[in-house]
Design a protein around this nucleic acid. Structure first.
Length: 158
DNA sequence: GCCACTTTTCCTGCTT
DNA sequence: TAAGCAGGAAAAGTGG
């Protein structure tokens, strides 16, 4: 697995030179993301903003191949954009909580252009990370912890 | 085309 | 009862 953090993440000034439709266009297109109509105004604007900013922080590879845990990590590192969908429980230990599970799933579904994404499926994908050490199990509902193989979430290692 | 890897989908059973 | 979690199984998508 390539280290997408090293190569492409946290480069806020990175230009997005791609012939594909921009995220700004993408998220302002109601036909493209009809799921937004079910969001509250606050959540909807948050999701749109997060989508744009999230893309800004990734290279083009992020659009198609960014990993779920990196998406979650980036959301956690941008609290002003996740609108309370995720929040840190213990920043130093990498423990975080999913506050708005449906909104998180919807956001991930938008990233992957999959409007059938649910938190049930998203959480299944997150559980696979236990095997690889990217996430560690926390015996509390909606609470996860970054594992030894996760990187880029620690403040002093950004 | 094959392979490895990641993610999605569906499922059952259990816990909160 | 609903929501969430655990994990098996199979399949799809992607990149090398």
């Amino acid at each position: 697995m390539l280290d997408s953090v090293t190569h492409s993440t946290f480069l806020p000034n990175t230009s997005f030179c791609d012939p594909l439709m921009s995220w700004t266009d993408l998220f302002s297109n109601e036909e493209y993301y009809p799921a937004f109509e079910h969001q509250t105004d606050a959540d909807s604007s948050c999701l749109k903003t997060s989508g744009i900013k999230s893309q800004d922080s990734h290279s083009r590879t992020g659009l198609q191949s960014s990993h779920l845990w990196e998406f979650v990590r980036d959301l956690l590192l941008s609290p002003e954009e996740n609108c309370g969908i995720l929040e840190w429980e213990d920043r130093e230990q990498g423990i975080f909580r999913v506050v708005k599970s449906e909104a998180l799933a919807k956001m991930w579904g938008q990233r992957k252009k999959n409007d059938r994404m649910t938190y049930e499926k998203l959480s299944r994908a997150l559980r696979y990370y236990y095997k690889t050490g990217i996430l560690e199990r926390v015996d509390r509902r909606l609470v996860y912890k970054f594992g030894k193989n996760a990187h880029g979430w620690q403040e002093d290692k950004l």
